[in-house]
Simulated assay, not measured.
Amino acid sequence: MSKVKAAVIGCGSIANGAHIPNYLANPDAEILYFCDIVPWKADKAVEKYGCGKAVYDYKEILADPAVNAVSVCTHNDAHALISIDFLRAGKNVLCEKPAARILSEALDMQRAAHETGKILSIGVCNRFATSVNRIKEIIDSGELGEVYHVFASFRAHRSIPGLGGDFTNKAVSGGGALIDWGVHYIDLVMYCCGEPKPLTASGEAFCKLGRDIKNYVYNGMWARDSAKDDGVYDVDDSVTGLVRTTGPVISFHGAWAQNIGKSETYIDFIGDKAGVRLDYGGGFVMYGVKNGMLVEIVPNFKGNDAYKAEIDSFIECVIDGKKNQADIDNAILTSKIMQAVYDSSQSHREIAIDY
């Protein structure tokens, strides 16, 4: 069997931290190209990993028949254009989350995948985490009974990334805390609950603490190298919402930044027989009743590297021609929910979601 031949588009932190190392660790794959519009980043990747060719325009790769797998690790504003171009060039694509800045772009991506018959997976890596799949198994088995409400908290004290740069520029990113962090939480909930149809959403997104860029006080900042004191800040640093589905009601509260000095990152799956609290990125506790007693069960299991599992699954999909749980047809539901929450915030009313 010949190896999967991959190209990595965008050689930033997510590419170097998740995609590239796991392609190289998989015996069924090799990387032919490293591409970045910042030339030194592509050059550095070739030097660091000792393979592939550096290119600075992804269009140079489109016509290469050897390439059959592409990771799109660019800023959000380029996701749709680049993914669609590669799909129409006959390549299978793994596009980092979020699928796109806005729903219409994500729908264009889904349409291109359907029309070309190629695989389009979205980088919602939690779908490959052992802890998440254990919870899904518990829900599917009926141990929680009817899961009627799920609450997600993705709150930090002062964690606005790259203040003033692309992360906080809506034209580039599409949004803030919701589209950057909330996408993972909402998608995880949808996956564990069996992809229920979203019906309506009501929410408010707040742009408050980062507006005064020069006087913003923080302890640490991810992507500090992309921050700009004279840049743009027009995205949500916190968000709250409620989503009705054909399954559970989903509510959430998220914040890149808030004037509460606590970080709270968890998801509660609340059923009429039992409940589960997932410590995001970690393990979980199950609460229930047994023999007339209230019980807490703390499972002990071996976790995994969700990014590695994600890349391994994508490579397997390319080889077998089969879709996995991160396919655009599943991930599109989260795009619909996020768009509805943003629309609700702008109009200050509940939004019906056209499934």
Results as ranks from 00 to 15, higher is better:
S173E: 05
E310K: 10
P39F: 15
D108F: 01
N76I: 10
T240K: 13
F154M: 08
G10S: 04
H348L: 15
G241W: 11
N259F: 13
C207A: 14
K48N: 12
Y148M: 00
D108V: 03
F314Q: 00
D236W: 03
R158Y: 00
F167Q: 11
A255L: 11
I351Q: 06
Y233R: 03
E146S: 12
K48Y: 13
Y342M: 10
K262N: 14
V4W: 07
E264F: 13
A152N: 12
K41E: 10
C192Y: 04
T168L: 09
L199Y: 07
K53V: 13
A113H: 06
C11K: 08
G117R: 09
I315L: 04
A99Y: 05
W256V: 02
N22E: 06
I31A: 01
C73M: 14
K53M: 10
I14R: 14
K44H: 14
G182Q: 04
L242I: 12
A15P: 09
Y49G: 07
Y58A: 06
P21Y: 10
V67M: 10
K59M: 13
A18V: 08
G275C: 08
I337W: 00
T265M: 15
D234L: 02
E30N: 02
Y58H: 15
M221L: 01
C35K: 14
E30A: 03
G176D: 03
K48S: 15
D64E: 11
E146K: 14
E143V: 05
D85A: 12
G231D: 04
G303I: 08
D108A: 13
G292E: 05
V70F: 11
A156C: 13
K302Y: 08
V93A: 08
K91L: 02
G10Y: 05
I250S: 01
S202K: 15
I319D: 10
F34V: 00
A201E: 06
D57I: 13
D187F: 08
T245L: 00
Y185M: 08
R244C: 11
A223S: 09
D229Q: 07
A18R: 15
G145N: 01
A352S: 14
V285D: 13
Y218K: 09
R244W: 05
C51M: 14
Y218L: 01
K308I: 01
F86N: 11
S251V: 10
S251H: 12
V232Q: 01
G288A: 06
A340D: 01
F301I: 03
C192Q: 07
R155L: 10
E316A: 10
N304S: 04
P98Q: 05
A156S: 13
H75L: 12
D187R: 09
H75P: 14
Q339R: 09
T74M: 06
K214D: 05
D229E: 11
P98M: 09
D327I: 02
I267E: 02
A42M: 11
E204S: 14
Y49T: 09
V147S: 07
E264L: 15
S173H: 05
A54Q: 14
D225M: 03
T246V: 08
K197P: 02
V276H: 10
A106S: 00
A177I: 15
G282C: 13
G231M: 09
A106W: 04
I351S: 00
